[in-house]
């Protein structure tokens, strides 16, 4: 399946490409993510996520989901099943809520994408019971959702690019924070000076979404220069 897009919407091929790109980037950063996690957690974030996304690739090879929503729900189920650690249910809930938000729509416009990102973030908040500033995934997701909502909605690629950029800045901004959730919270002040692994992986995955949209958009249609 080749990624296609009209420039004003993204479709199942984009969703599949996003998942494939996510798997590639997680595999590429597997060791680095686990090193971040080793500093302030249990040191398995990269391995766990890699296991989950590898399983997603296997499912995509078996059968291509017909809609973005179906792709998100497959990803949700697979991540919760395969990841094992807290990242499984957190990312799984994010994808599950995103899938519910978009329903069986064949194409997602910017408004629906913003709704999906918002639902995903709300799912992570509900599942993890964390708030902004707790040094968690939320610190990448909330700036991403805010930026997406404020972005130029003429093209999904621009919305996702804004989200990815904000998520990356949000992840960097977790460095000085004191962890208040998850295993890192046991370290208290010693968690300062380390990047939150979940925020880091969230930024990678949201960047993959933007890259997939840029690749799908017709040249010049969205100004992403893909």
């Amino acid at each position: 399946m080749t990624a296609t897009g009209t420039g004003t919407t993204v479709d199942a091929a984009w969703a599949i490409d996003w998942l494939r790109r996510s798997a590639a980037v997680v595999a590429e950063h597997r060791v680095a993510l686990s090193e971040l996690d080793r500093a302030i957690g249990d040191g398995d974030h990269g391995e766990n996520l890699d296991r989950g996304f590898t399983a997603i690739l296997a499912k995509l090879d078996e059968e291509a989901p017909p809609t973005p929503g179906a792709a998100f729900k497959m990803a949700a189920m697979t991540l919760i099943s395969k990841v094992g650690g807290a990242a499984g249910p957190l990312y799984g809930t994010a994808f599950l809520r995103a899938g519910t938000a978009v329903g069986d729509a064949a194409a997602l416009d910017s408004a629906l994408l913003v709704a999906a990102l918002t639902a995903a973030r709300d799912g992570v908040v509900a599942r993890g019971k964390a708030e902004s500033g707790d040094k968690t995934m939320i610190d990448a997701w909330t700036p991403a959702v805010d930026a997406a909502a404020a972005a130029d909605r003429s093209a999904p690629a621009a919305v996702l690019a804004a989200a990815a950029e904000a998520a990356e800045a949000g992840a960097v901004a977790t460095d000085p924070l004191i962890a208040r959730k998850g295993r890192a919270s046991y370290l208290g002040e010693r968690s300062m000076g380390h990047r939150d692994p979940g925020a880091a992986s969230s930024a990678l995955i949201l960047r993959a979404a933007a890259d997939a949209a840029a690749a799908a958009a017709p040249a010049g249609a969205s100004g992403t220069g893909a």
């Binding site: 189920m77 650690g85 807290a86 249910p89 957190l90 809930t93 599950l96 599942r127 295993r183």
Partner: peptide, 14 residues
């Protein structure tokens, strides 16, 4: 612990 709660909650949501 923690993620067991989250997995169980996710199962119920599914």
């Amino acid at each position: 612990l923690g993620s067991a709660v989250m997995t169980a909650e996710s199962a119920l949501e599914f």
